[in-house]
């Protein structure tokens, strides 16, 4: 199992598009938007830092794992694996674990950019809390990616994952704060898992504990999307 996990991580890191979309874009956009439109409160640099880290980690979960499962199913690779002692549930666990590991580079790099380039200064305990919190915040999207991966063929899964990545990240206020949205759109945004996932980290920056009333909405999405992923997985295997 350990060998397989390592192989999956290595395989994914060898993919130039993966690195570009899930690491290059978030770091690049973060620096672009904070350097060009920044200048104001350093609060913005910190808030946008966790937003872009979450956007990148969501991308890793949705496209790096979900679409990958669809490709491997379409190529018949999962059928070959099903004949080995590796059971389908084991395959899924490896994909999940790889996803968790692969969200780490973007989270750390965006934070490094925040610290080194934008001079974001936070208590050590806050830095340390943000990493597991962003991991947790990514889980619903990894579950969604898995559900797509077990439902669609490869090109379709890829397209759907990318559309959802942008719809959810923009709609959830990761690209521009929900405070700038018109009222009706802000109301929609607050129902999305992406807003509620971001909220966990934004609250910590504001000095609160991460789990407020909005965490219930997040938990609801997490449970629903995990159930969806589990159902699609059982249907497919």
């Amino acid at each position: 199992m350990g060998t397989y996990l390592l192989l999956e991580v290595r395989r994914t890191l060898r993919s130039v598009p993966f690195l570009l979309y899930t690491v290059g874009f978030p770091v690049g956009f973060y620096l672009l938007f904070t350097q060009v439109f920044g200048g104001g409160a350093s609060n913005w640099a910190a808030q946008y830092m966790v937003s872009m880290a979450l956007y990148g980690a969501m991308g890793a979960g949705l496209t790096g794992v979900g679409a990958r499962i669809a490709t491997e199913r379409t190529r018949g690779w999962t059928r070959t694996l099903a004949l080995t002692p590796l059971r389908p549930a084991g395959y899924l666990v490896i994909k999940l674990a790889a996803s968790v590991l692969l969200t780490l580079p973007v989270i750390l790099l965006v934070m490094l950019a925040g610290f080194a380039v934008n001079g974001v200064r936070l208590p050590v305990s806050t830095w340390l809390l943000l990493v597991p919190l962003l991991w947790l915040a990514t889980l619903p999207f990894t579950a969604l990616g898995i559900a797509i991966g077990y439902s669609a063929r490869d090109e379709v899964a890829n397209g759907v994952s990318i559309v959802l990545l942008f719809a959810l990240s923009i709609g959830g206020g990761l690209w521009m704060p929900v405070q700038l949205f018109p009222g009706w759109l802000a109301a929609v945004a607050k129902g999305l898992p992406s807003y509620r996932a971001g909220e966990l980290a934004w609250r910590v920056l504001d000095g609160h504990q991460p789990f407020g009333a909005g965490a219930l909405v997040f938990a609801g999405w997490l449970v629903a999307l995990l159930a969806l992923a589990g159902w699609r997985f059982r249907r497919a295997s």
């Binding site: 060898r14 004949l83 002692p85």
Partner: peptide
């Protein structure tokens, strides 16, 4: 062990890495 029709190998892995992985299972 089986060799099925219409299965393709996954990219970005070397022959040695793939075989080490399968042996390990």
């Amino acid at each position: 062990g089986a060799m099925l029709q219409e299965t393709k190998l996954v990219p970005r892995v070397t022959v040695g890495e793939l075989l080490a992985f399968v042996r390990g299972l």
